[in-house]
């Protein structure tokens, strides 16, 4: 981009770490090349004079959207758990231990 950080290179390994994505060396090399092309292309946004322009987050902005404070049926727990890759009795989802010394939960 016209001013600001160096955008000629993307450190894919670092960004993949932020995105919680395991990538192979081959993928990292490939994405660096391909996304380098894409970033080079999007650099043309630097030409546009955006001074005094407000950003658009939503094209049809609505504010303070409220719903009635009323109970309504939700999705049942068993239905939700039926898609869990690993669950335990009592409506729990199993994951690797997060805290040391809590083996065999």
């Amino acid at each position: 981009m016209g001013k600001g950080p160096d955008t000629s290179h993307i450190d894919v390994r670092y960004v993949a770490d932020l995105a919680r994505l395991e990538l192979s060396d081959d993928e990292i090399k490939r994405y660096e090349e391909q996304l380098g092309d894409v970033l080079h292309y999007v650099d043309q946004l630097g030409e546009v004079d955006v001074s005094g322009v407000d950003p658009t987050a939503h094209a049809m902005p609505l504010t303070n959207v409220m719903r009635d404070d009323r109970e309504s049926p939700g999705i049942q727990r068993d239905d939700v758990l039926s898609n869990a890759p690993a669950s335990l009795e009592g409506g729990l989802i199993r994951v690797p231990a997060v805290i040391d010394g809590e083996e065999g939960a």
Binding site: K3, G4, T7, V42, L45, G46, V50, A57, A59
Partner: peptide, 15 residues
């Protein structure tokens, strides 16, 4: 990179 890319793109979106 947020300002250089994302925020700028949102402003271009306004235009």
């Amino acid at each position: 990179y947020y300002d250089a890319y994302y925020l700028r793109a949102q402003k271009v979106r306004t235009l």
